[in-house]
C-alpha cells in the first residue's frame, strides 16, 4: 500500500504501547512484518534512553511517532515538531484527545492541529472518530490518510459501529487505517472486509498472552480480510436461498 507516495511493506501496522519488555519487539516485528511501527514521544529517562529506537532502527522498520496524550492542538504541534527532530521523520500519527477518561479525539483541536502541521510540511495521519464528515474535513486540510477508531483505545471491543467505518471509507480517497479497539484477528479481518487499507494494533498484540502469536494471527487476518474484500462477498439476504438444485430430488 502507498501512503503519501511511499510504499509500505504491510497492511498490518503495529504499536509498541503496552509492551511488558522491549526485548519482545524483535519477535513481534518478525511475526507481524508490519507496514510501520508507532512510538510515542516522551521525556528522556536515564534508564530507557534510546533502547526502543535503536532496536526499531536495527530492525529496519518505518517509525511513526504519535502525539498520544496531547489535549490541545498546541501540545500536539509541539510534540510533532519534537518527533520530527528526534526521529528524523516528518510523518506523524496525530492524536488530540478530548479527555483522559474517554480518550476520544477532540475534533476541533484535531482539525486545527492537522491544518497547522500540513502547512509545516508534515505528513499527517490523524487518529479520528469514525465520522465521515470529519474524515473529509481532515483530508480537505491535507491529511495523507485517516485513522478512524473501531472502539475506544485499549478496549479491545473491535468495531463498535462497522457502518461508520464503511461510511468513512466511502467518504475519502486517501488510505483508511482502522485504529484503536482491535482485540483479536476477526476484528482486523472485518476492518479489511469493510474496505480499510490497513489496521493498526498495539495492545491487542502487546497485552496478548503470546504477543508474537497474536501478531502472526493479525497479519493473517488482515491478509484474509483484504483478499475477501477483493473477492466480492455475496449479499446478505433476509430469506433463505437454496444452493442445491431443487430438480431431481429423490421421491418427487
Amino acid at each position: 500500500m502507498r501512503v503519501a507516495g511511499i510504499d509500505l511493506p504491510g497492511r498490518l501496522w503495529i504499536g509498541t504501547g503496552g509492551l511488558t519488555s522491549t526485548s519482545l519487539v524483535g519477535e513481534i516485528v518478525e511475526a507481524a512484518r508490519p507496514g510501520l511501527v508507532t512510538v510515542s514521544v516522551r521525556r528522556t529517562s536515564d534508564t530507557e534512553r534510546g533502547g526502543l529506537l535503536d532496536m526499531l532502527r536495527a530492525l529496519g522498520v518505518r517509525i511513526l511517532p504519535n502525539t498520544a496524550g496531547c489535549l490541545s492542538a498546541r501540545e500536539a504541534v509541539l510534540t510533532a515538531q519534537l518527533a520530527r527532530e528526534a526521529l528524523e521523520t516528518d510523518w506523524v500519527k496525530l492524536e488530540v484527545i478530548g479527555d483522559e477518561t474517554s480518550l476520544m479525539p477532540d475534533a476541533v483541536e484535531l482539525l486545527d492541529a492537522a491544518e497547522t502541521l500540513v502547512r509545516q510540511g508534515f505528513t499527517v495521519l490523524p487518529y479520528t472518530s469514525a465520522d465521515p464528515v470529519l474524515a473529509r474535513r481532515l483530508v480537505d486540510v491535507g491529511c495523507a490518510a485517516v485513522m478512524p477508531l473501531g472502539s475506544p483505545i485499549g478496549t479491545g471491543r473491535g468495531l463498535d459501529d462497522p457502518r461508520a467505518i464503511e461510511a468513512v471509507r466511502a467518504a475519502v480517497a486517501v488510505p483508511v487505517v482502522l485504529d484503536a479497539g482491535i482485540g483479536t484477528a476477526s476484528d482486523a479481518a472485518l476492518a479489511m472486509e469493510l474496505g480499510c487499507d490497513a489496521v493498526l494494533a498495539a495492545t491487542a498484540i502487546t497485552r496478548a498472552d503470546r504477543p508474537a502469536q497474536m501478531a502472526a494471527a493479525l497479519r493473517a487476518a488482515v491478509g484474509a480480510g483484504e483478499m475477501a474484500r477483493r473477492a466480492g462477498r455475496i449479499p446478505r439476504l433476509t430469506t433463505a436461498r437454496a444452493s442445491s438444485p431443487m430438480a431431481g430430488r429423490v421421491g418427487t
Binding site: 509498541t16 528522556t44 498520544a68
Partner: peptide, 10 residues
C-alpha cells in the same frame, strides 16, 4: 528545557 525521545506507544 524538555528533552524527549521515542518511547513505547500505540
Amino acid at each position: 528545557v524538555e528533552v524527549v525521545t521515542a518511547h513505547q506507544g500505540g
